[in-house]
Design a binder for these strands. Structure first.
Length: 224
DNA sequence: TGGGGCGCAGCGCG
DNA sequence: GCGCGCTGCGCCCC
């Protein structure tokens, strides 16, 4: 019985390409280019899920407040960040403490690097306890993310719906929202310039009863 | 079989 | 990028 680390090493040591993965799908629209596929089988995904659940240290709940239309709200999910030295992370105007990669996380990062051909120096971990926990539509940190790099999302646990909406969809009703499901063990690659033009969200789904852990790998500009 | 009720998704708004 | 209130729709139930 191989450990998770060994199984991931084996995956990382073989040549891998996103387009050769199971259920590979590429979606292209105006200013949007995203790819989805199954990266890990069910068994390994569950082991990664457990490994993450054991190791990830989330921010204190009361430190995660977001100001929307003048009112402060606790965010409806758990969050954590891991990154290289010298990277800072700002959430809702506050510079948050970050942690250094641990082995499982850096292995996953290395696989994502190998798949996409880009380096990532930062990962945001979001944990959604059930379908009542969610994230509203947004772009990922516009100022600090290198816009020439993809943003890569890995999903573990409860499958959830995921929606893209063009930021100018009022003026362009022809650009209808793009909806997809993110299953356990899946990868989603948001290629440039998707994040510049499209908002994305993880909507409430009352029927989703179980937790989902999501990793979003990014390349952040180093602060001087 | 169909009408009513309920729960959920989607949207506008602050 | 939050919750709330409203609406419309699909599904379940008898």
């Amino acid at each position: 019985m191989m450990s998770v680390i060994e199984q991931l090493n084996e995956i990382g040591n073989k040549p891998i390409e996103t387009k050769n993965l199971k259920n590979y799908r590429r979606i292209v629209a105006e200013h949007l280019d995203v790819e989805t596929a199954i990266l890990f089988d069910k068994r390994l995904s569950y082991e990664i899920y457990k490994g993450l659940d054991d190791a990830v240290e989330y921010y204190e709940e009361n430190s995660l407040k977001v100001k929307v239309f003048g009112k402060w709200h606790p965010v409806p999910r758990k969050m954590a960040t891991y990154c290289d030295e010298g990277i800072t992370y700002t959430f809702s105007g506050l510079t948050m403490p970050t942690r250094n990669w641990f082995p499982l996380l850096s292995q996953l990062r290395d696989i994502v690097t190998k798949l996409t051909g880009f380096d990532y120096n930062f990962v945001l971990v979001n944990r959604y306890e059930n379908g009542n926990q969610h994230i509203g539509e947004h772009r990922d940190g516009e100022k600090e993310i290198d816009p020439s790099s993809p943003i890569v999302s890995l999903s573990f646990g409860q499958h959830r719906d995921f929606v893209f909406r063009h930021s100018n969809s009022k003026a362009r009703p022809d650009l209808t929202p793009i909806k997809m499901e993110l299953p356990n063990g899946s990868i989603l690659v948001m290629n440039p310039p998707t994040n510049q033009f499209w908002l994305h969200s993880l909507p409430i789904r009352k029927k989703a009863l179980h937790p989902r852990i999501n990793l979003t790998f990014r390349k952040i500009f180093r602060s001087e």
